[in-house]
């Protein structure tokens, strides 16, 4: 694929880019410069062209691999709307046996029943995926009622990340403030007040969400929520979206929000408990 940047007529993004300087100044609390004037015929840069996007791929496997069909699409939309991250509009799905697994260092794995036994190649690929720095998010669509999916995930992680310990992620982990200040990892349900994860060398390699994050994200074709969130309803859904945003910001920025300057600023503003 080959797409060259072209100067185009005024677009929404171009107009917004022009305003960006002033807006940035307001964020920084000071008056700033406006962007330079455009010169006809010059390449006008990436703001007018399609930005570098990130995919939110989901793992395909034999069985119900997509219990929450639109979850990643909704999360991608919310990320575009809320952050400067540029997810693709239609996240892909992939087969762990193929090299496409390594197109993105993030992988979403959902299920409402036990995972089937993956092939040796698939497991080897997943193991290399984690070792090279990938992050896998496992999402239990049962919301904590069954547990078969989580047990199968634990067994899988035992094989692809031997020696690693799946343990609760502490509440003060940077994952809970990578974009929003989130208290609990709620999803469609709030059965568990914590999520599980594998941490090695200062980074999370795998996350296991047992409150059905996809269920909170999924929408019907008309845009309404596909499932009610219990017990918090609409507000809980908002917090689930925020947590989903945090996961992707953590995936792209790692522990950026653990930098001392950020922590001190947040503490000064008393916005971080």
């Amino acid at each position: 694929m080959r797409e060259r940047a072209r100067a185009t007529s005024t677009t929404r993004r171009r107009w917004l880019a022009g305003c960006a300087g002033v807006a940035a100044a307001s964020v920084a609390g000071r008056v700033g410069a406006a962007p330079p004037p455009r010169i006809p015929g010059w390449p006008s840069g990436g703001r007018e062209e399609e930005p570098i996007t990130v995919d939110l791929p989901q793992l395909r496997y034999d069985g119900n691999w997509q219990p929450r069909g639109s979850a990643m699409r909704v999360l991608a939309r919310e990320l575009r709307l809320r952050t400067r991250l540029e997810p693709v509009a239609e996240p892909s799905s992939l087969d762990a046996e193929r090299s496409e697994l390594f197109e993105t260092p993030f992988l979403y794995v959902a299920g409402d029943e036990a995972l089937p036994t993956l092939t040796r190649t698939a497991e080897a690929n997943l193991r290399q995926f984690l070792d090279l720095g990938g992050l896998a998010l496992f999402d239990a669509a049962d919301g904590g009622t069954d547990g078969a999916f989580v047990r199968s995930v634990e067994a899988l992680l035992g094989r692809i990340a031997p020696g690693s310990q799946l343990a609760p992620v502490a509440r003060d982990h940077v994952l809970f403030r990578s974009f929003y200040l989130v208290d609990e990892p709620v999803g469609r349900t709030a059965a568990f007040d914590h999520l599980l994860g594998i941490q090695e060398e200062g980074r999370l390699k795998a996350l296991v969400m047992r409150n059905d994050l996809g269920g909170a994200l999924e929408e019907l074709p008309d845009g309404r929520a596909a499932h009610p969130c219990t017990p918090g309803g609409t507000e809980q859904r908002q917090w689930a979206i925020r947590f989903g945003v945090n996961v992707l910001l953590y995936a792209t920025c790692t522990d950026y929000k653990a930098d001392r300057a950020h922590v001190e600023t947040l503490l000064r503003a008393r916005r971080w408990r």
């Binding site: 960006a20 952050t83 400067r84 929003y180």
Partner: peptide
């Protein structure tokens, strides 16, 4: 830069980190 100026200014500003 995590949030652009054309990103939606939601009512959840206080929740931002």
């Amino acid at each position: 830069i995590l949030r652009d100026f054309d990103d939606i200014a939601r009512e959840d500003t206080e929740a931002l980190s």
